[in-house]
Computed example of a mutant assay.
Amino acid sequence: MKLFAALILSFSCLSAHAAELTQPTGPVILEVTGAIDNTNAEGVARFDKAMLEQLEQHVTKTATPWHEGKVEFEGPLGRALLTAVGAKGDTLVVTAINDYAAEVPAEDFDNYDVILAMKADGKYMRVRDKGPLFIIYPFDENPDLNSEVIHNRSVWQIKKIEIR
């Protein structure tokens, strides 16, 4: 009986690491490629808004260099996205709609409550508002994050993340 339970547990762990994601039913707003185990198309994990909202969510109220006063941002935790795709790399290349790209250490998503903000002050962010996704660090919680290096990692209008 113990052997059977061990086999079931082993199989469960293996399938958790290499699984297909569900298919998006709405417009795809994010593609994740590179060193990932979990996909829903050939070599890519595609996410629509509903799929991103099913990941662990977090709210961060913080001031940013791009907004007046404090803004309440809401969206999935970056580490929840990395877990969902089975990320294996240590660097993320985050690319915006206008092809601006920044390298973000994967450890930032583990060390801080970095979110892929979908909402600002309760409203979905449109492209003109830096949406549909915007990397937000908890700037007010950790003053060390309020630096040019971190600001450059705070990509908005994200369309793609490559895991390296």
Results as ranks from 00 to 15, higher is better:
L30E: 02
N40Y: 04
E53Q: 14
E42F: 06
A19E: 09
G26V: 01
H67L: 06
L30Q: 00
E72H: 06
A16P: 02
P65V: 04
G69E: 13
A19I: 04
T62V: 10
I36D: 03
N40P: 10
A16H: 09
L30F: 01
A50G: 10
L52R: 08
A18T: 10
T64L: 03
A35K: 10
N38P: 05
E68A: 14
V44Y: 00
G69C: 13
F47Q: 01
N38A: 05
D48Q: 04
A45L: 01
G26H: 10
G26W: 03
E31P: 07
E20K: 13
V32H: 08
A41W: 07
L30C: 08
D37F: 01
A19D: 09
A45N: 04
R46Q: 15
E53V: 05
H17I: 05
T64Q: 04
P24W: 07
E68F: 12
L52G: 00
A63L: 11
V44N: 01
E20F: 11
S15D: 07
F47A: 04
G43T: 03
N40L: 02
A19L: 08
D48W: 04
W66I: 04
E56L: 08
Q54W: 01
E20W: 09
T64H: 00
L21F: 06
T64V: 07
E53T: 05
E68I: 13
A45S: 10
G69V: 11
K70T: 15
H17W: 03
N40W: 00
K49G: 03
V32D: 03
T25P: 00
A41T: 14
P24G: 08
T60R: 07
M51Q: 11
L14A: 12
T25D: 12
A50V: 13
G26C: 06
R46P: 02
A19Y: 01
A41S: 15
T62M: 02
T62F: 03
P27M: 05
H58M: 11
A45F: 06
T25G: 14
G34Q: 06
V28P: 06
A19C: 13
A35W: 07
E42G: 02
A16M: 13
H67W: 08
E53N: 12
V28M: 06
G26F: 02
G34N: 04
L21P: 05
E53M: 14
A50R: 14
N38D: 08
V44C: 07
G69H: 09
K70L: 10
I29C: 12
G69F: 12
A45M: 05
K70D: 09
A18S: 13
V32Y: 00
T22A: 13
H58A: 11
W66Q: 06
I36W: 02
E56D: 15
H58T: 01
A19H: 13
H58C: 08
P27F: 03
V71R: 02
E20N: 15
G43S: 12
D37G: 15
A50H: 12
